[in-house]
């Protein structure tokens, strides 16, 4: 195992998440431990309700675990406040969601600008450039409702990469798209992963997509049942 200085981007230890449901304690994640190197590409797979999305939320610092810890690029998320984690996300993390989650009142380009503007960086030129990269250079003034699902996801991808994140979390990025469109999104993601060395963590049902990852963790009932690394 490598330290964060020479390569670990993300690690978790004994990660457990339980909820109280109808008076009974429900274990959604049970004692998950793994780490991922810088520039790695991890796919988390498993059936519905296996805890994939919960794990993603915890890894990205969107939620706090019941037990265990997550270290993201050397920062222990458990010791940080909500706002400190937000700050960290704005510096190092990108997101892609199943339902795109573009902000409906912002144009495509403005959506891409948000992460840069949050960091107080010049945004317009880079946003335009990124949109061109995802093939939407001429759609920058369109609102999300004027774009197709695939186009929206491409904008979301441009937004995710706009602030040059160290790590990108994707939750079923192709779940709402047809196979062809989904394929092009995956190609874009892997391309950017290679180019700027962004670490990729994605949750998916899609076998083809999972097969492209260099590492695959399979969850079932909150436990890691398989951890395969392709070389």
């Amino acid at each position: 195992m490598t330290s964060s200085a020479n390569g670990t981007m993300l690690s978790c230890e004994g990660l457990t998440q339980t909820y109280l449901s109808g008076g009974r304690r429900l274990t959604v994640l049970n004692n998950i431990t793994f780490s991922l190197e810088r520039g790695g590409f991890l796919a988390i797979v498993g059936p519905s309700g296996s805890g994939k999305t919960t794990l993603l939320g915890l890894l990205a610092g969107l939620d706090r675990p019941s037990a265990g810890r997550v270290v993201l690029d050397g920062h222990d998320l458990g010791s940080m406040t909500e706002d400190e984690r937000a700050e960290l996300r704005s510096q190092k993390v990108g997101f892609v969601f199943q339902s795109f989650h573009l902000i409906p009142t912002l144009t495509a380009r403005e959506n891409v600008q948000v992460p840069l503007e949050l960091r107080g960086e010049p945004a317009e030129e880079r946003a335009q450039e990124l949109l061109a990269r995802v093939g939407l250079g001429d759609r920058s003034h369109h609102y999300p409702s004027q774009l197709s699902g695939g186009e929206q996801q491409r904008v979301a991808l441009a937004r995710a990469f706009s602030a040059r994140p160290q790590i990108l979390f994707a939750d079923e990025p192709t779940g709402n798209l047809d196979a062809k469109t989904g394929g092009s999104i995956v190609d874009l993601m892997t391309g950017l992963n290679r180019e700027i060395g962004t670490t990729l963590v994605l949750v998916t049902h899609d076998r083809d997509l999972a097969a492209k990852a260099r590492r695959m963790i399979r969850l079932a009932d909150g436990n890691v049942v398989e951890d395969i690394t392709h070389s």
Binding site: L62, E82, D83, F95, F97, I103, T105, R159
Partner: peptide, 16 residues
């Protein structure tokens, strides 16, 4: 709510 959640996800602080 969804918009705000996304903004928070992208790193906007609660105060912002």
């Amino acid at each position: 709510l969804p918009t705000i959640a996304v903004l928070r996800c992208l790193g906007a602080t609660a105060a912002q």
